[in-house]
């Protein structure tokens, strides 16, 4: 499969990335080379192959339902450039 400029730009927008024309050109070339490499998968019969997801552990460990407050909340919030008192302020949300 090969992708055109518009498809790559659309994927970029989906990832909230705006590319310059030069970046787009490079990205399209890269992605198409990359997809060509992945086209090798078609040589394999993968129909009955089970996906590899986790080598171990076989089951997700579970935590007991206990409250343990994080001690450095203030330090964490101080890292936001958008902090407004106790809240985080963001500009207008368009759509939806």
């Amino acid at each position: 499969m090969q992708l055109g400029n518009d498809e790559v730009r659309e994927a970029a927008m989906e990832a909230r990335l705006v590319l310059t024309d030069l970046e787009l050109e490079r990205a399209v070339k890269f992605i198409n080379n990359f997809l060509s490499m992945l086209d090798r998968f078609k040589e394999l019969d993968l129909k009955d192959v089970e996906s590899f997801r986790f080598a171990e552990p076989a089951r997700c460990p579970l935590r007991e339902d206990e409250v343990l407050p994080f001690p450095n909340v203030e330090e964490m919030l101080a890292e936001s450039e958008h902090r407004s008192g106790a809240l985080i302020r963001v500009p207008r949300i368009m759509g939806e």
Binding site: L35, L38, F41, L44, V49, S51, R53
Partner: peptide, 15 residues
């Protein structure tokens, strides 16, 4: 299906 899922299956073959 064609790429991500296929890759996870190829990964199983490799393992």
């Amino acid at each position: 299906e064609e790429y991500y899922i296929a890759a996870t299956k190829v990964r199983a073959l490799i393992a």
